[in-house]
Write a protein that binds this DNA or RNA. Sequence first.
DNA 1: ATATCCATGTTAAGAATATAACGAGTATTG
DNA 2: CAATACTCGTTATATTCTTAACATGGATAT
Lengths: 207, 207
Amino acid sequence: MGNYISDAVIKRLPRYRRYLRNLEKSGVSRVSSKELGEMMDVTASQIRQDLNHFGGFGQQGYGYGVAELGNSLEQIMGLDKTYNIAFIGCGRLGQALIGYLNGNEPHYKIVALCDNRPELAGTEIAGIKVMDKEEFKVRMRKGDIDILALTAPARIADEVAGDLEGTGIRGVWNFGHTDITIKGVHVMNVHLSDSLHALTYYINHLD
Amino acid sequence: MGNYISDAVIKRLPRYRRYLRNLEKSGVSRVSSKELGEMMDVTASQIRQDLNHFGGFGQQGYGYGVAELGNSLEQIMGLDKTYNIAFIGCGRLGQALIGYLNGNEPHYKIVALCDNRPELAGTEIAGIKVMDKEEFKVRMRKGDIDILALTAPARIADEVAGDLEGTGIRGVWNFGHTDITIKGVHVMNVHLSDSLHALTYYINHLD
DNA sequence: ATATCCATGTTAAGAATATAACGAGTATTG
DNA sequence: CAATACTCGTTATATTCTTAACATGGATAT
């Protein structure tokens, strides 16, 4: 541990995990890098090379245990632990993500919500009280939030993001339309519109 | 035109455009690759190299015209045209995207909606009637839809995706939790949970 | 008008990433 | 129980992507 592994590799890990869990659900108990590569449309070599950054999970002549490798990948990503997550912005996008996490991601626990719209402040979403900006800033200082999801207009997100220091927040899942960078915190900028624009390029350049 | 340009380059174009439009809003009319690179935290060399795939947009000793380069990038991506887009899945995520597009993306026009839940079928969202699966399949055959956004459970999405041939749909913006590939159609798989999982890896490996 | 500065487009070098090759060890088959 | 087929981990090669270098020509200043 501790040694650097490239972004390209890390970004592929969730996808490997997804395919393995699907195989597991289908009752498949072993898989070779060749088989998995064909399913995922990547080379067997890449799979073996990627996994090898973290250790040897397979066996010669046999392949990989589907459940075991899935577990190992979860451990590598830290999905064997549970994370407290808070949302700034409880509009439709925020609510969509909250609903998804509650239903599908048991390792993420929603512990606090913030929205500055007067009609939302004081209401509850998924059993959690929606706080206004000031109350939320106090709540952040409690120190138990691991990840902050930003699903609010950039202005509000920027303001609150300025107050992260000393809160223990380690990650930001940013859906705002500006890139943000915060010292000591890992920011994942999602940018849905960028993906639509790239898609638009491609549909104009289909062979 | 017609010559291959790598994914890595294409994925960066929307971000360049975003920064340029923001500069334009701030009243900046010219920018050098060095200045832009410092803002965006990329090398000046990469910017020049990326742009050069599409032609020469700058001037020696001067730099790039902010508005002109923004326009050129939009033209490269095809954002000078307008696209008809349809949604399968009008839950919170679908509605969030519909609202965003209507308010912020004038080049995408929402022309059809589909949701199989009985309580939604027949209602209107953003002035568009929500159709059930069968009615929507007929609607697709009209041939005027450019992009299909999949914001529904994989099962339904897969079923409808099987009927794309001959509809003229060129792109799919897929928010489902399985990868899909369709012959002759460009699919942009978004996978929000993958980004959360990668973020989780990183917060466990902050220096 | 002349000289200096700037910043491009482009070519060359370097770094990172992906693919192929292969030796070693396990499972399977007859 | 021997022989064959598999498939891993790993090393080597090939490819792709990024960064640096530089010559050219326009902009700016005096």
